[in-house]
């Protein structure tokens, strides 16, 4: 009986660890960036994607350590999940909350920190 209880607890724990709001396996932040972000932010993360030519507001250069260092992880997460308007930025940055789950969104913030070689509040 105790063994069965432990198995059930372990199963519940695994569900919490690997389950997600979207009910799908989390993809790596690098792969998600290539799929969803690179169209505007560029294949090198420099803000120069294929869509930029006719955009009124240019996408952020994610390799810009000075700017990216000035934004908090919370701001980056909010913009990724709810779109640019949620942090008083452009509507051209869309919300990805229905595409990426919370685990993937948090991983994306860490990936952005890798691209800019910067941390929150530091350049």
């Amino acid at each position: 009986m105790k063994f069965l209880k432990n198995v059930l607890l372990l199963a519940a724990g695994l569900c919490l660890m690997f389950g997600s709001a979207k009910g799908a396996m989390a993809a790596s932040a690098k792969d998600n960036y290539r799929t969803y972000c690179a169209q505007c932010h560029g294949m090198q993360g420099n803000g120069q994607g294929i869509n930029v030519r006719d955009m009124d507001v240019q996408p952020r250069n994610h390799t810009d350590a000075v700017y990216m260092g000035s934004r908090s992880d919370h701001d980056l997460l909010t913009a990724d999940k709810k779109g640019g308007l949620a942090i008083n930025k452009s509507v051209l940055m869309p919300p990805w909350g229905d595409t990426l789950n919370d685990q993937e969104l948090h991983a994306m913030v860490q990936y952005l920190r890798k691209l800019c070689h910067c941390q929150e509040g530091k350049q």
Binding site: R34, T35, A38, Q39, G42, M43, Q44, Q48, G49, I50, V52, R53
Partner: peptide, 12 residues
């Protein structure tokens, strides 16, 4: 799309 883009002089 990402399989059909390359860096250009100004943007991808």
């Amino acid at each position: 799309y990402a399989d059909h883009i390359k860096p250009g002089p100004v943007h991808d």
